[in-house]
Amino acid sequence: MSPTLQNEALQSRAEALGQSLPPLLAEAEMLAATLMLGEHGRRRAGSGDEFWQYRAAHQGDPARAIDWRRSARSDGHFIREREWQAAQSVTLWVDPAKSMAFSGGRERPPKGDRARLLALALAVLLLRGGERVGLAGLAQPRSGRSQIVRLAARLAGEPEAGDYGAPETAGMVGHGRAVFVSDFLGPIEPVEAALSRAADRGVRGALCQILDPAEEEFPFDGRVIFESMSGSMRHETQQAGELRSRYLARLAERKDRLSELARAVGWQFSTFHTGAPAQSALLWLYRALEGGR
């Protein structure tokens, strides 16, 4: 490619990014604001300035840790605990593969759009709470407002060529947190391998499966041509309705397997649909990270 054509292609991609980035970021910040979570609470005892709770003193607690004013109001001794406030590193992976471009209805967003929105809204919440957030293989975990813009730019990139994505673990911080957002409809082996690598580094987190309602219900009958988003796979049937029970059984097996894999390494798993409001998925993700602390 000549330098002129390269410059034109670069300019075209830059203009497309400039058009897509502000809406994605604005929508993510609006979604994050709907949760009204306030300051990000770590909800466990540790070093910090904020009071968390009183607890009864146990044998072995140093005398200097006792809150004598609180203890004077009862017959026992109490320890004043502060809330743990050390920042955590959270690494996000959002499936960029072609399968995420699917939407079964004009009124519903593609799965990839919902996945990117959720990831960026979660990043907004975490960064506002002082955490460090990054994208696996694309952006190292950092804190601050500028990181939100950086993540939005990375998420607005072009999709990959393949039908299904493999979770990326590059950039994960040991003993940090991670979130994988995907339809998880491709080969299961890459998911197993990624979770194993994460577990070896002490990383815990959540698998968030995004599906279109059509993929959940299989509302097809009669003659149907099924084609992958990349066009590499194609299947034509005259009696699609007869495939429904087998398809739903396979989907249930896949969900069970993902749940088992997550449970085995201390992660959480849940499925959400593009036809439902995004708030429930965002709240679940936020709480899932809290629960892994």
Rank of each mutant, 00 (worst) to 15 (best):
T91V: 15
M1L: 11
G60M: 07
V265C: 01
L285E: 03
L24W: 00
S12V: 10
L25G: 04
A97G: 12
L24P: 01
K98Q: 15
G46Y: 01
Q209D: 07
P277C: 15
K255T: 13
Y164N: 03
A32C: 08
L282P: 03
M1D: 07
V203R: 00
V149G: 08
E131H: 07
H273E: 10
G165L: 03
Y54D: 06
P159K: 05
D75L: 13
V94D: 01
F184I: 11
L21G: 08
L258I: 00
R114F: 06
A262V: 00
R154L: 15
R82E: 08
A136Y: 05
Q147E: 05
E192G: 14
G222A: 06
S146W: 12
L261K: 00
V90Y: 02
R250Q: 15
A288G: 02
G48H: 02
I79A: 04
A33S: 12
G105A: 15
L21D: 08
R154M: 13
P277Q: 13
Y286F: 14
R150Y: 10
R80A: 09
R154G: 06
R42D: 07
P219Y: 01
A249L: 13
Q88F: 08
S12T: 12
L127V: 07
S182F: 06
N7D: 14
L251Q: 09
R204P: 03
L195W: 02
G291V: 09
P187H: 11
Q19E: 12
R70A: 12
R244I: 00
A199V: 06
L195K: 00
Q238T: 10
G130I: 01
M233V: 14
L138D: 04
R108P: 10
M36H: 12
I225R: 15
M100F: 07
G292C: 11
R150I: 12
R263V: 02
L118V: 02
S74I: 11
M172I: 12
A87P: 08
